[in-house]
């Protein structure tokens, strides 16, 4: 098996070595990556799911991760906000190293929003309560402010009239848009999308992708696991191809689509693009 081919310019030491008062500024200006994964390994029992994944995302970038199922791409994106643990390597998010320290984990989770394949809305709360819960409880905003922000977000994702319904009363596409609004309500610096359209009926995929495209164009830093190649072609700055727990190839969309270097990438693309 060949070593991971993707070269990452930044080392963890470069970020952690920068004094804290300059770190945020350097990340803001794009000199340091806002997300850095360095040689991340993970095992499930004896199964080696992530085999030295290194990847960097700079502020404002839209990065798409794609690859066959079982390649570890979902597992990887879930290590970034510590929904999955990893056993070797380093992940640094917004200048904070992800460690076992619960304070670091909570800090990173506050700055990263996540959208899941299965939406995972809270079925016992209304749409509005789903969105305002975390801002009120975690950010300690007053209820009025949280509700005002929530209503603005619902307008942005196109469903302000559903605010007082329960998730079970909405269509899949509407639920996923609520999930996006819920993640945005915490005003995260990074948005993680874990196959956001895979559980949707075909006619609802577009309404969710439209919201994501609008979000990308507004300058949000996004890390997206998806098979929607149209979306990647339209907004991605960079794409990473995962296979068997490794990054096989990376590059801007034109290069990946028109001139892939690796055989495995070519094969996979030929299977999904007909």
């Amino acid at each position: 098996m060949r070593e991971a081919v993707v070269k990452v310019k930044t080392t963890p030491e470069q970020i952690l070595g920068t004094p804290e008062e300059h770190r945020a500024d350097a990340i803001e200006k794009g000199k340091l990556p806002i997300v850095l994964a360095h040689e991340v390994h993970k095992w499930y029992g004896n199964f080696h799911v992530l085999r030295g994944v290194s990847l960097e995302v700079f502020k404002g970038e839209v990065v798409v991760i794609f690859g066959p199922s079982g390649s570890g791409k979902s597992t990887f994106i879930r290590t970034i906000n510590r929904l999955e643990e990893y056993q070797k390597g380093k992940i640094i998010v917004d200048g904070t190293e992800l460690s076992r320290d619960i304070r670091n984990i909570e800090k990173i989770r506050m700055e990263t929003g996540m959208v899941f394949q299965q939406f995972n809305l809270f079925p016992h709360l209304t749409v509005l309560q789903n969105i305002t819960l975390a801002p009120i409880q975690v950010r300690k905003w007053p209820k009025d402010k949280a509700e005002e922000v929530a209503m603005q977000l619902l307008k942005r994702v196109g469903i302000p009239d559903q605010a007082n319904k329960f998730p079970g009363q909405l269509s899949g596409g509407q639920q996923q848009r609520v999930a996006i609004a819920r993640a945005l309500a915490m005003q995260p610096k990074i948005m993680l999308f874990d196959e956001p359209t895979s559980a949707l009926d075909p006619e609802m995929i577009k309404e969710v992708l439209d919201v994501m495209v609008e979000l990308a164009e507004s300058g949000m830093t996004m890390l997206v696991v998806t098979h929607e190649m149209g979306f990647a072609r339209a907004v991605a700055d960079r794409m990473y191809f995962f296979d068997q727990g490794q990054i096989v190839e990376s590059g801007p969309p034109e290069q990946i689509f028109t001139n892939p270097q690796e055989d495995r990438t070519k094969l996979f693309l030929s299977q999904i693009l007909h």
Partner: peptide, 11 residues
Amino acid sequence: GQYEAAWALGL
């Protein structure tokens, strides 16, 4: 998924 969604929000 309910736990994960809550944790991901920072609760």
